[in-house]
């Protein structure tokens, strides 16, 4: 298939990444605009417009729910995005330096090889999961889902346990940097927790969030 029909199908494929409720309301109209702004003879969506659409879809997924959330919830959501960014930065540092750390630790004390390997793999596996949880929590709390407060409390509990583990001296790798990173993340979580459980946030979590 070529021409406008093929181009329209391409646009619909990109638009599939938007929330269903948004698509139902706006897809026909967005297609109209996309087709009107397409170049003469264009066969498929361009890179720049596809990036713009995907970015728009991400914003729609991560946007706070209907009814303006109180400032306490908005600030908590911002802290959750900051937590995701911090976890991402920590993960990048670990991935970039992992090779050097592995060889340095093993040459200094070969007996620690298993421990080093386990620790690095744990960071590389749980880092992306933690980033996902931060983003999920930002979305769910922004939408006013009451269960999100429970999940976030559990998340804080797990971070508290790992912080206690570090304080107990069970980890020697990246000792100082690790401790600082976990402490900062814990403080960010604590601040977000206080905000979502504040009196001003309570009424927002009682409403029924709309379908996405």
């Amino acid at each position: 298939m070529t021409g406008p029909a093929s181009l329209e199908r391409g646009y619909r494929r990109v638009l599939a990444c938007y929330p269903r409720a948004f698509r139902r309301e706006n897809e026909q109209e967005i297609i109209t605009v996309l087709m009107a702004t397409a170049r003469e003879g264009q066969q498929r969506p361009g890179l720049a417009e596809s990036v713009d659409l995907v970015r728009g879809a991400l914003r729609m997924w991560l946007r706070p729910g209907p009814g303006r959330p109180p400032r306490t919830v908005l600030n908590a959501v911002k802290l959750m995005y900051a937590g995701a960014a911090l976890d991402l930065a920590a993960l990048i540092i670990v991935v970039v330096t992992a090779g050097r750390v592995r060889s340095a630790m093993v040459s200094r004390d070969p007996a620690q090889w298993n421990f080093v390997l386990t620790h690095l793999v744990a960071v590389e596996v749980f880092g992306p999961i933690a980033i996902g949880v931060w983003l999920w929590m930002a979305w769910a709390n922004g939408r006013g889902h009451d269960w999100a407060r429970g999940v976030f409390t559990t998340f804080l509990g797990l971070t508290t346990l790992s912080l206690l583990g570090w304080l107990a001296g069970s980890a020697v790798l990246y000792a100082t940097a690790d401790l600082i990173a976990v402490t900062v993340l814990w403080l960010v979580q604590m601040a977000a927790m206080v905000l979502i459980f504040s009196r001003k946030s309570a009424s927002y979590y009682r409403h029924e969030p709309a379908e996405r």
Binding site: V33, T37, R55
Partner: peptide
């Protein structure tokens, strides 16, 4: 939608060209 895109382009003297994702 398309009218807004062309009008914004004109108002901004051709500096701002809104894309559909940003507009919607």
């Amino acid at each position: 939608g398309y009218g807004i895109i062309t009008d914004v382009n004109e108002i901004s003297g051709g500096r701002v060209r809104l894309r559909a994702g940003t507009l919607y």
